[in-house]
Design a protein around this nucleic acid. Structure first.
Lengths: 195, 195
DNA sequence: TCCGTAAGATACGGTCGCGTTTCCTACCGA
DNA sequence: TCGGTAGGAAACGCGACCGTATCTTACGGA
C-alpha cells in the first residue's frame, strides 16, 4: 500500500496495532480479530504482537478497554438539562456513527462472552461513568434544579437505558428528536424539583 | 451416559439437538457451539445436523430464535399496572435465573455479530413483543388508566430498557424491589392519566 | 560510527473444526 | 415380515489459526 521500508516502533507501532484491531472488529466482528489478521492489517508480524500481549484474548480486551476509555464527554453546561442533553447527544452520536457503532456493538458482544473483560470494564469504564453521572445529578440538586431525594441509581442511567435498549435490542431509531423527548418527557419530570 | 442402544428420530431428536445447543451456548459461549460439540453433547452425529441445517450459523440462529420464542408472558391482570408488573417480573426472572440468563446474554451477543439473525429477530420476536406491549397500553387507555396521548414508542419499552441496561451494561442488581420502583416511580407517572 | 534492541518476514508443528463421504444398522410403516 | 428411511459412527481432506523459533535488518542512542 505504501511505506515500503519504514519501520515503526514503540507507541507508534502500538497505535497502528490497536487501529488494526478496531478495523477488524468492526468489519469482521470479534471472531475476525485473529493474530494473523491483525498483523496483516497493521502491516506488522505476529511476533510483534506476542511480544506485547500474551494471547489473542488479551489483545482484544486491552484494545477494547483502551478504546472505550474515550467515550462521551460529561460537560458542565450550567444546567442539569443541558448536561444531560449533552451526554445523551454524545451517546446518540456514538451509537449512530458508522465508525463507532460497530465498535460499541463488538464491545457489548465481547462483554457477554468474556467474564474477565466484563469485570475489568465494570471496574473501570462503567465505574467512572456512573460517578460522572452521579456528579451531574449532585450538581443539579445543589442548584435546586432537581429534587434532593432523586433516586440516583435510576436517574443516573434512565436516559442511557432507553438509547442502549434501542441500539442493542429493538433497533428503533436514535436521533436528536428522540434524545430531546427522552430528556424532556421522561428524565426531567422524574428528577425535577417539585415546584 | 446411558440410553445405550435407543435411537431417536424426528421431533424428539431435534429437541435433543436444540437442548444441546443451549447447553453449549450457556457453558462455553456462542463460539463453543461447534458442530462436533453439539453432536457429542446431543449424543448424535454430525451428518444428522447437516441433514437439518446447512451450517453452523444456521443451527445457532434457528435454535436461538426458537428459544427466544417463549419469553416472558403478557397476561391480562385487569390493570395496566398489574400487567406491566407481571411483564417486568417475567423479565427480571429471565435475566436473573442462572438457567436462562446466559442464554439471553448469548442471544444478545449473537445479535451484534450476525446481521441475518438480527433481522430475523427483529421481524419476529421483537416485533410481536412490541405489539404485545402496545396492546397492554391500548387496553390501559381504554380503561381510562392511562392518558390517551401516551407516547407508545417510549412507554412500551421504558421499563424493559432499564432492566436490560442493568443486565447488559452496568451489572447493577435486578430484583423485585427494583422492578416495583421502576413501575411506580418511573413508568406509571409517565403514562398515567392526568387526574 | 557502531552496537544493541526490537521490528519484520517466514516457516513450522500442532490443533481444531469444517463439511463430506462411506458404511452399517435400528426403526417404522406398509 | 420386509424394505425404505434415516440415525449413528468413523474417517477424511482441507483450511485457518494458534503460539513459537529462527534469521535478517532497520533504527536509535551512545
Amino acid at each position: 500500500m505504501s511505506a515500503p521500508a519504514r519501520r515503526r516502533r514503540g507507541a507508534e507501532l502500538e497505535r497502528a496495532i490497536r487501529r488494526a484491531v478496531i478495523t477488524l472488529v468492526t468489519t469482521r466482528g470479534p471472531a475476525g480479530v485473529t493474530m494473523e489478521a491483525v498483523a496483516a492489517e497493521a502491516g506488522t508480524s505476529k511476533p510483534v504482537l506476542y511480544r506485547r500481549w500474551p494471547d489473542r484474548a488479551a489483545l482484544l480486551r486491552d484494545t477494547l478497554l483502551h478504546t472505550a476509555g474515550r467515550a462521551v464527554p460529561t460537560p458542565d453546561t450550567g444546567t442539569y438539562r443541558g448536561d444531560l442533553l449533552a451526554v445523551l447527544r454524545g451517546w446518540a452520536a456514538t451509537l449512530t456513527d458508522p465508525a463507532t457503532a460497530p465498535v460499541v456493538a463488538a464491545i457489548v458482544a465481547a462483554l457477554q462472552q468474556d467474564a474477565e473483560l466484563r469485570d475489568a470494564f465494570r471496574d473501570s469504564v462503567i465505574g467512572w461513568r456512573k460517578a460522572e453521572m452521579a456528579r451531574l445529578i449532585a450538581r443539579g440538586i445543589e442548584r435546586g434544579e432537581l429534587r434532593p431525594d432523586v433516586p440516583v441509581e435510576f436517574a443516573r442511567e434512565l436516559g442511557q437505558g432507553v438509547l442502549w435498549h434501542r441500539f442493542l435490542i429493538t433497533g428503533d431509531p436514535i436521533d436528536d428528536g428522540v434524545v430531546v423527548r427522552i430528556v424532556d418527557e421522561i428524565v426531567m419530570p422524574f428528577v425535577a424539583a417539585r415546584p
